[in-house]
Design a protein around this nucleic acid. Sequence first.
DNA 1: AGTCCAAGTAATCATTCGATTACAAACAAG
DNA 2: CTTGTTTGTAATCGAATGATTACTTGGACT
Lengths: 203, 203
Amino acid sequence: MTVEEVAPAPRMRSADRREQILVAATAVFGAKTYVGTTTDEVARAAGVSQPYVVRLFGTKEKLFVEVIERAYARLLAEFRAALPGSVEGRAERMGTAYTSLLAERGMLPVIASSTALGGEPVIGRVARKGFSEIWRFVREDAGFTEEQTRQFMATGMLINAIVGLRLTGDYGDELSATEIFDACFPDGVAKLRTFMPGTDEPW
Amino acid sequence: MTVEEVAPAPRMRSADRREQILVAATAVFGAKTYVGTTTDEVARAAGVSQPYVVRLFGTKEKLFVEVIERAYARLLAEFRAALPGSVEGRAERMGTAYTSLLAERGMLPVIASSTALGGEPVIGRVARKGFSEIWRFVREDAGFTEEQTRQFMATGMLINAIVGLRLTGDYGDELSATEIFDACFPDGVAKLRTFMPGTDEPW
DNA sequence: AGTCCAAGTAATCATTCGATTACAAACAAG
DNA sequence: CTTGTTTGTAATCGAATGATTACTTGGACT
């Protein structure tokens, strides 16, 4: 019996490889924290070697910047797609658009965690820009009033907290976790749970 | 001219020293991230040696757990103190109690950042517990309805995002930062700014 | 004075991790 | 076929950092 050969990573154009790594990095960064995840974990999740990740993105920081920018861009696109239709249903459609991002591994956790990284010089700037753009979109493009905007964004931040805290895993266990969920997702939590697997599974 | 002697840290009972380190650690952890701050920075901020921090708290993780627990306990106490008085003014008094915690270095940033650490096995549990206790207090002890609780907590999470993003520093600079602030603190932002110094000064 | 314990540090170790370097292999063009 | 470019890895380095060990100092109490 011959030694099992490690499948050499099939060739790919660097642009595609970049995108593949960004997807993997979103999942891995979303599962832990920015500082807490290593470039090696990202590389392994993407199926390439660690030096290649560094080579394609320069530094870990630049990689994470691209991850955040990509996440906010995706969120913005999702919101934009939710605009058409009745004005009354707009807020709900946008809210659904937000929670449906849970289906994409790490997307929501990355956005959520970005709001805690204002202290990082480089990343903080990117996170502020992303948040500000979302706020501006809701206010101007979606046409929300100032108060509506505040409430919409506040609800989003509450969802962020639930996601960031992994309250989903404890659903049913802890005291008020059930009520927290019911308060935030009155239409039932079943759909959400399908999106949110285990406790520390990489999202 | 004799060599300037480094002032040896004055003797102190370990209980007092622990508290002093916790105060310093709150400021330092609040200024950056949990993973991103070193025990040495904490030690220097507290005016002791790095090994002594480790000795008093066992591990960096245990130190941070105590920092979080202390912050949530403080917040709970502040909320409790805001209960007496007219029922109508209760929400506003509690809100003021929350923002006034900005005066204590790192307190609010630590609480805010804790909502993004659910992925950490040990710390996540503590953060979930703190958040759940706050929710329970608002709902039961403060007597808010489910909807009131949801809105109150959501507003708190929005404040967390503003704090975590350091949007205060950009006030006036970026496009919608001004409106974000006005929407969240309609009573004027002057007081807040006095609480929030520089951009990356340790809070 | 002498003893004992608590408070505190200097020195250093062992890992981890991001980054660099040098090299190999696939593919395209002439 | 040969040559050049792009894709990719193995090996390794250097710095940062949490933790450990061994030692010192100060005070309280006989």
